[in-house]
Design a protein around this nucleic acid. Structure first.
Lengths: 166, 166
DNA sequence: TCTTAACTTCACAAGTTTCTGAAAGTAGCG
DNA sequence: CGCTACTTTCAGAAACTTGTGAAGTTAAGA
């Protein structure tokens, strides 16, 4: 028996159209192509999770490509890997209600920008025009850090009201 | 007479170190290399603006490369182009206090994601599990749209207090 | 109107990234 | 303890990206 269709009763054409379209947007925003396609496929799956074989089949790519994409996505905390009990297959899962919170966990990125700017202020001098510009930019990022945390708190409240407990 | 040093009295080594380091962070975050370097150079300049020739010289790249990078940056509203009066040179300027606001003008990006998700909800059906997941993701992005606008308003107030009128 | 400084566009070479098939590694299950 | 199903790693081919030189375009100033 070949891989069974975990997602029956859906128009594969419509699914594929969404997957490729959404992936294209992610690519445009800077994500690599294969991770973007894998992620979009998971997002469009009813169960929110697919096996490596299912991903390879529906995207028409090799297991190696799936492996690489999934490694990237789990490093970014955008998918979780889980082992199917009593099987040697792995499933990759998008945390429905939390994946997009990972988008706001650009914290690491912000921190590195801040650190580069801090060095710049120090080495060019805080009293030079360039130093002052960088200091203000730095202040902005520090401000954003704090605001994002507060925003996510408000989102959780908002979400609760709109969608109920997830 | 060759291009005159618009930025005298600074340690070119220190400037270059900052430029390359900050550019590397921008690249990591998804920006192309040359736009990142050009942008970092502008950010590190005392006047906040450099000519094409100055950029080419300090980054050691051809006029063609500068041209391409600047086109990209101005499309992203990260730099403005201005013509030096009485000259055929152009200057490229980073709007000290507003460039990073362009970062939050990822509005176009968000809008395209939203539109892709809306199509997905429609084509997979709002009552399917996948459709519901996408609808919630969509709601999150719509929420973020509004929050970012409010956040920038708060930033302007905060900035005023900290740095005074810009 | 002509000259010429400055910017832009274009075709291509060099460099980088991405995906594949094949080989190696890992872990259920008998 | 070995077999086998699955996943990962790796070297290399193919596709894409990036930066260059050279030709083309624009516009300031005489």
């Amino acid at each position: 028996m070949t891989t069974e269709p975990a997602e029956a009763g859906r128009d594969p054409e419509a699914v594929s159209k969404f997957v490729e379209g959404f992936a294209a947007q992610l690519v445009e925003a800077g994500m690599q192509r294969m991770p973007a396609r894998v992620f979009a496929a998971l997002l469009a799956s009813d169960s929110g999770s697919l096996t490596s074989a299912e991903l390879g089949e529906s995207l028409r790519v090799s297991p190696a490509a799936v492996s690489g994409a999934v490694r990237y996505l789990s490093q970014q905390h955008m998918v979780a890997r889980e082992r199917e009990p009593g099987s040697r297959r792995e499933r990759y899962r998008v945390h429905s209600n939390q994946w997009y919170e990972a988008l706001t966990n650009r914290e690491a990125v912000l921190k590195r920008w801040e650190s580069a700017l801090r060095e710049g202020v120090a080495s060019l001098g805080p009293d030079t025009p360039a130093g002052r510009r960088m200091a203000e930019t730095l202040a902005f990022f520090e401000f954003v850090d704090g605001e994002i945390a507060a925003m996510m708190e408000r989102w959780r409240v908002h979400r609760e009201k709109t969608f109920g407990a997830g």
